[in-house]
Design a binder for these strands. Structure first.
Lengths: 157, 157
DNA sequence: TTGAGAACATCTTGACTCGGAACTTCTCCA
DNA sequence: TGGAGAAGTTCCGAGTCAAGATGTTCTCAA
């Protein structure tokens, strides 16, 4: 698989979109390998992280999906898995009986914390390739690109 | 769908991987909308672009897939579509009868050029959000992340 | 109060994905 | 020469995805 050599050579003529996707694929692959050790998927970790950190913003499954960039049906099947694993619960909202709020359990919170630490290590290993200044620019640029109110198809992870 | 507001606020605590994927999703969505006007997919355009620009590197389907970050079977179905549309041909290699080299047709080259110009406009519209200096850092960082010889699962687009 | 329409979660369904197996052809060494 | 293993392409099947439909509940205005 040493076919990747030409990339650097002709990177200028390849479109920005591909570059972004390819980088995401590569980084995602490293993260996925790490998170697999904890028995959950990257997407599961993402959901747990959102539920652990920011419970107010995720009052409904629909809002949670929009926030994370996940399709509603994809999110549902992920919540099914997490619920089956005892990492989250869906609690009925007493105020609105349509809503079943996803809530992280203690077990889920614990797993999320461990997995999060492991992922932070992976992230750090990527960081070492860049200067602090470069990381600042990169992060700012990515978050700017990630924002936007236009609806998007599919799931981001 | 104005749920995206919180992103900027709590972006610091979200992991780099998600940010990258979300940015790719957003940018990809804009590119996909544009390319759809030409009746092909983003992935189709990617393949055409590779075949148009760098035919030497793409002598076999396997190499082409590895170069672009596409799964071999995914690439095959994409090549089927492009071939059906008359945009590429698979020509048997006289030297190696296992190989059927994908080659872009004149029609394909023409479409690729038009679509490429349209996508360049989209890319330019993204560029305006950043300074030249920022773009340089961003592009360099992304191409560094995109490189690597470790095998990766799935398809990048 | 009641009816229309929106919001939410879930289900259905058809399409797509992709790892692995199968098949053909090539290479290289004994 | 011939046989083992690698390379290239295609096929297969289990799994995944997501658009739209469904059914329930809520909101708001008449």
């Amino acid at each position: 698989m040493e076919v990747q050599q030409p990339i650097a050579a002709c990177v200028e003529k390849w479109d920005f979109n591909w570059l972004l996707h390819r980088a995401a694929q590569r980084v995602g692959s490293a993260f996925a390998d790490e998170i697999a050790k904890f028995g959950i998927s990257l997407r599961g970790q993402l959901v747990l992280q959102a539920l652990a950190s920011d419970e107010e913003a995720a009052r409904t499954q629909l809002k949670l999906g929009a926030m994370l960039g996940l399709d509603k049906t994809t999110l549902m099947s992920e919540l099914d898995k997490l619920e089956r694993a005892g990492l989250i619960m869906r609690v009925p909202d007493p105020k609105d009986r349509r809503v079943r709020t996803p809530v992280i359990t203690d077990k889920g919170r614990e797993l999320q914390k461990e997995a999060g630490d492991a992922l932070a290590d992976v992230e750090r290993s990527f960081r070492t390739r860049f200067s602090h200044q470069e990381m600042v620019v990169l992060r700012k640029a990515l978050s700017e690109l990630a924002e936007g109110e236009s609806p998007v198809h599919g799931s981001c992870i």
